[in-house]
Amino acid sequence: MKCKEILEKLSEYIDGELDPELCQDLERHMEDCHPCLVFVNTLKKTISLYKYAGSEPLPKEVHLRLHDYLKKKCQGC
């Protein structure tokens, strides 16, 4: 497998959706290719950073305004 072919498969690899044989090929390639290993690690880090950053709570005032709005609107439904 060449580096460019690896790039095309990385999301499937990260998501565990890659055919086991291709998965082995890819891992063998990464044992010898440090840049591809760094690339996959930084791609995983990108995903986990967004996931981690995405957990802030809903502001209390937004919650209260939503419930007020719905109560008013839905009474006429």
Binding site: C3, C36, V38, N41, T42
Partner: peptide, 12 residues
């Protein structure tokens, strides 16, 4: 091989 640098090895 392309030149790629590591990111800091720190938790999220």
């Amino acid at each position: 091989h392309p030149q790629i640098q590591e990111w800091p090895d720190k938790p999220e």
